[in-house]
Design a protein around this nucleic acid. Sequence first.
DNA 1: CTACGGCCTACACCCCTGTATAGTAAAGGT
DNA 2: ACCTTTACTATACAGGGGTGTAGGCCGTAG
Lengths: 198, 198
Amino acid sequence: MTKGLTDRQNQVLQFIQEFQAERGYAPTVREVAARFGFRSPRAAHDHMKALQKKGFLSSVPGLPRTLAVLGSRRNIPILGRIAAGAPILAVEEADEFLDLEPSFFGSGRFFALKVNGDSMVGDHIQEGDLVILKAQEQARAGEVVAVLLEDEVTLKHFHPTSQGVELRASNPKIRTILVRPGEELRILGVMSGLVRKV
Amino acid sequence: MTKGLTDRQNQVLQFIQEFQAERGYAPTVREVAARFGFRSPRAAHDHMKALQKKGFLSSVPGLPRTLAVLGSRRNIPILGRIAAGAPILAVEEADEFLDLEPSFFGSGRFFALKVNGDSMVGDHIQEGDLVILKAQEQARAGEVVAVLLEDEVTLKHFHPTSQGVELRASNPKIRTILVRPGEELRILGVMSGLVRKV
DNA sequence: CTACGGCCTACACCCCTGTATAGTAAAGGT
DNA sequence: ACCTTTACTATACAGGGGTGTAGGCCGTAG
């Protein structure tokens, strides 16, 4: 469920999204009302107004079927580099977007990073590839993660050990990094996919 | 320019597409008329009717802004396997679609194939990857192509030589195939990208 | 020559649709 | 208790917008 919305508002938003996806155009106030059994268009209108105030919908006042679901810009932000010291993964920081339905990779919030170097060739990840990462700060052993280390973002295998966390590359030429318990380690996301353009 | 349409119809279709993409909803007959300087909504309506008859648009009669541009299902068909003897690359044959804007990979018609085996690991293409191919029957030396060989589709490097066409895998364990001039060889497409889900 | 399709003007009908006004009712929060 | 928020009913108005009718101009295929 999307945060900040009531159950009903969520249902309405979801209906509008589905309607839009199926038919290619937005429903009217009355069509929403009919779907939920409202006997007055006002009820649906109220919900839609609430969704607009909360920033989930937009519409042009007075004009029919001008509803547009915001934030459904079926795409994944490509975070080229991350500002040193301020690893904010806000969509606003993105230079570019990958126009791919994020749900293809599962649920959650995703972002993409362009791969520099060949430290992960063992996993068939090559320079220039866009790695799709699910934004989360935890990871399980063996997963490929994007971590922030001294203001730099790197892609590594995540291996917790008794000594600390080992960050292993899949290129044998690259040394494993050991992050001891006290040291700063921030996981930005775990790898969920890859997109390459040749 | 899209085939089968007059210049004007093309302009109208393009305008509707752009309007839709920018604002999230379709224009009205009068908005189309205004854009083209028509003094009567009828002129625009005629064009839209023609576009509907030709199958480029759909709309619900009587209801405003219910225009929907057809065939703009921004996605790439995934051709799991190709029927033996009938390698028809029709969209209708697709089991699944990759919901990715094809223009990301360039212009043309694209399709995707799921990779079987490890014959292309040298190019960091692994089992299960979706290879994006641009549908075309010609290829240049060195390009990765999907070819139809004896009712089977394989992914190989394309290398024309004086002896015929060599189809090289990028896994040294796999033997190069030589297709002599007389033998049947059909190129289905050249590789333009790759999508992996982990 | 003529029929036809593409392209356009002018006018008008009238349903669809957003939205305002006026209430009712239950659930919390303070 | 009081007030705010959520969630709805009922009714009505105004104008947005699809579409029909009537017609004109032009180029091209038959």
